[in-house]
């Protein structure tokens, strides 16, 4: 083969390399800001925060600058636009503090009050435009104060692992009756996407906040909450350990954002009150999952 033909073939290969790579690169651009699907339960007051995640192309000329949630004019948003970096996209995160004051002691509400459901938010972009975007479902419970809660339960320790398992434990300071476990996102538990077990009056939880919990401490233990027969009386000195494990398989679930709030209702001297346990799912998609998300996002746009 003459050198002329070698060069011609080499130039053809270079051309194919550029055309192929540029085509593949363009085919994997999202072309817009896309929010992940959120299933979040939170409450006002007490400095509670939740995270909103979104995906943007690295080369995007127009990026998300801020958000607005109707009914929460004072919300404080901390932006992390490059929370995680991928080959062609960034996973951004906005930590939202609703900034609603905690309810004063005088204002006592009933535990049966319904949460506010937020499904659309206003996204403001760097080019000055804004739009209403669907972010999934965010249940916001009103802040409540219950006199009965004072000192009956002491939360002692909690821990979580990168494989989305975790636990929270508490000691009971005076006799109480556990009457219910509830959540707006209980469907996750029923579908098997989230396992929540409770170990009541089992091991006495440690009180140390100094040392990180061991793997064995974090692991799921006790009985699934659905199998615990309620009401259940817990004596003074008893303990409650709530452990959880997320089982998010498949693109739609692993690219979702979950914050489960387990509401444990207690009864004492005829008064009902509850304690909330926040169970977050750490969204951390792999490169392959992000690529698939972008392709689906392009088709859906």
């Amino acid at each position: 083969m003459s050198k002329k033909w070698v060069y011609i073939i080499a130039i053809l290969l270079v051309t194919c390399s550029w055309i192929g790579n540029v085509w593949y690169y363009e085919a994997n651009q999202l072309g817009r800001t896309a929010f992940l699907e959120h299933h979040v339960e939170t409450r006002e007051g007490d400095g509670q925060v939740f995270d909103l995640y979104y995906v943007e192309d690295k080369r995007a000329a127009k990026t998300l600058s801020s958000i607005h949630i109707e009914g929460y004019p004072n919300l404080i948003v901390t932006s992390h636009p490059q929370y995680a970096e991928y080959q062609r996209q960034y996973l951004g995160k906005m930590t939202v503090n609703l900034n609603k004051p905690s309810v004063q002691k005088e204002a006592i509400s009933e535990p049966s009050a319904e949460p506010v459901l937020v499904q659309m938010i206003t996204a403001n972009y760097t080019d000055g435009t804004s739009e209403q975007v669907d972010i999934g479902e965010i249940y916001i419970w009103p802040a409540m104060y219950h006199e009965g809660a004072q000192d009956a339960i002491s939360w002692t320790s909690s821990g979580s692992s990168s494989d989305n398992t975790g636990y929270t434990s508490a000691v009971v300071n005076r006799p109480v009756e556990l009457t219910a476990f509830s959540s707006k996102l209980m469907g996750l538990v029923e579908a098997g996407d989230l396992q929540i077990n409770a170990d009541i009056s089992g091991q006495v939880p440690g009180r140390s906040y100094q040392t990180p919990p061991s793997k064995a401490q974090i692991e799921l233990s006790g009985k699934p909450i659905a199998e615990i027969s309620l009401p259940l009386k817990i004596n003074q000195g008893g303990s409650i350990r709530i452990s959880h494990q997320f089982n998010m398989h498949g693109l739609e679930k692993s690219m979702g954002v979950y914050q489960f709030m387990l509401r444990t209702t207690f009864e004492e001297d005829g008064r009902h009150w509850y304690e909330d346990t926040i169970i977050p799912y750490q969204v951390w998609p792999m490169e392959k999952e992000m690529t698939e998300f972008v392709r689906k996002g392009r088709n859906g746009s």
Partner: peptide
């Protein structure tokens, strides 16, 4: 030939 692979 190699340069455009930087994109992907």
């Amino acid at each position: 030939f190699i340069h455009p692979f930087l994109l992907n």
